[in-house]
Design a protein around this nucleic acid. Structure first.
Lengths: 224, 224
DNA sequence: AATCGATTGTGAACAAGAGAACTAGCTTGT
DNA sequence: ACAAGCTAGTTCTCTTGTTCACAATCGATT
């Protein structure tokens, strides 16, 4: 009944930054750097030094006062925390433009997330080979996860199909989903969902661009 | 000297949600719905009703108590706020897997962000046609923006090239950049930068997946 | 051994955001 | 005209996240 691992609860914001630190540290390691200060790491990661220290302190006290952090050791600890020991496969559902690009994108495999299956609903696509892998039909999705491996599902279908795919992924036992479809997808409690909405990012940028433009006009007006 | 438009400052979190409301409202409009309550809209957008009302109140009082919001009018107001009146072009730099997929992705144009130029550094790619558009060389980037149109730059290059591209975009007058390269890019004040890091999203999901898995194990241990 | 400069780890103030609860105002039915 | 029922708009509280400031601690140097 008592909480088993209440020792530390890492804030969501920190979790989102750990991979960034991880990347910076990997670069440092490859450059042969053995020690790094919170300030240096902050520069590389594009954040505030105090934030780096606080973030890292959630993992434990892995730094040395007066010196900094040992790159390799810190990297190891972040690896552990992020669960890089486990191999976590990725299934891509929907092989349109975006899905195909994601299937061919080496960035996933390079970072420990090998694409383990490609799925589509279009019979014309099923059976074809992409990035050295056969496309399977979505109706066979249950069998893909039969072995109980932990897997992340990527939804790259049109918006209309996204919720249905999500439901099937959840039914098949997937507990983490990354949604690229431009629509709201809901999942049951206990399933983690993140979204990447490309057009939405542009719209946000567009807002600020337009705001700045009109502000400039207003400023010019008040000058006159 | 006095602030010119202090009337309302829309919080960042709200700005990020406005496009979601916009999308939901567009769907409602296409279904012939003329009026919507904050609760309905909240359902569609996947958020809390109070948040919807608060968000919309930053734009002004466009609802009617006891009734709701008129879909078309609200849509118009959000359009205005997001700057959909202006046409904002998009330049994609880097035409590897991801860049090509983005170039072919209709989601941008559909939402008012036409791709206006494709740029790469590889001479082998320059001159080829993609999505009905000729690929230009990055050295000619200045000329692309010569007309002073507002444009968003998308960086889809390898990580190593990203900062250089960002610098050139900024030098050419681009004030909004969307970075897909898995690296930290810094820009001067006044330039808006957003990032989409695909592998990072997987790593975040991976963290929670692993945490849940170990928690389950721990719970089982304490049961025994 | 003692001091000094550097850097971590953390407590506390501060800021931003989320959500609940309340108020104000509209519409409809009688 | 009035009451009842909705629903927008607003206020308040709580949580989360950020930043600052400083004490604790380490290695180096004299």
């Amino acid at each position: 009944m008592a909480p088993v691992s209440p020792r530390r609860r890492i804030p969501e914001a920190t979790v989102a930054r750990l991979p960034v630190y991880h990347r910076s540290l990997t670069e440092l390691k490859e450059s042969g750097v053995t020690t790094v200060s919170s300030e240096q790491l902050a520069d590389l990661a594009g954040v505030n030094a105090a934030k780096v220290r606080k973030d890292l302190s959630y993992l434990g006290s892995y730094g040395t006062r007066g010196v900094g952090y040992e790159v390799e050791y810190l990297l190891f600890q972040i690896d552990r925390e992020l669960g890089f020991a486990n191999d976590l496969g990725v299934v891509i559902v929907g092989l349109g433009n975006l899905g195909q690009a994601l299937a061919n994108y080496d960035g996933f495999g390079d970072r420990g997330f090998p694409v383990t299956a490609l799925v589509d609903a279009d019979p014309a696509k099923v059976g074809s080979t992409l990035h050295g892998m056969q496309v399977q039909h979505i109706d066979d999705i249950e069998s893909i996860f039969a072995d109980g491996d932990l897997t992340i599902g990527i939804i790259a279908t049109p918006a209309a199909a996204a919720q249905g795919v999500a439901d099937r992924l959840v039914a098949a036992g997937v507990r983490s989903i990354l949604n690229f479809a431009p629509t709201v997808v809901t999942v049951p409690d206990g399933v983690h969902l993140r979204k990447v909405d490309l057009a939405l990012e542009l719209q946000i940028l567009g807002f600020y661009e337009q705001r700045d433009a009109t502000e400039a006009v207003n400023a010019a007006d008040s000058d006159s």
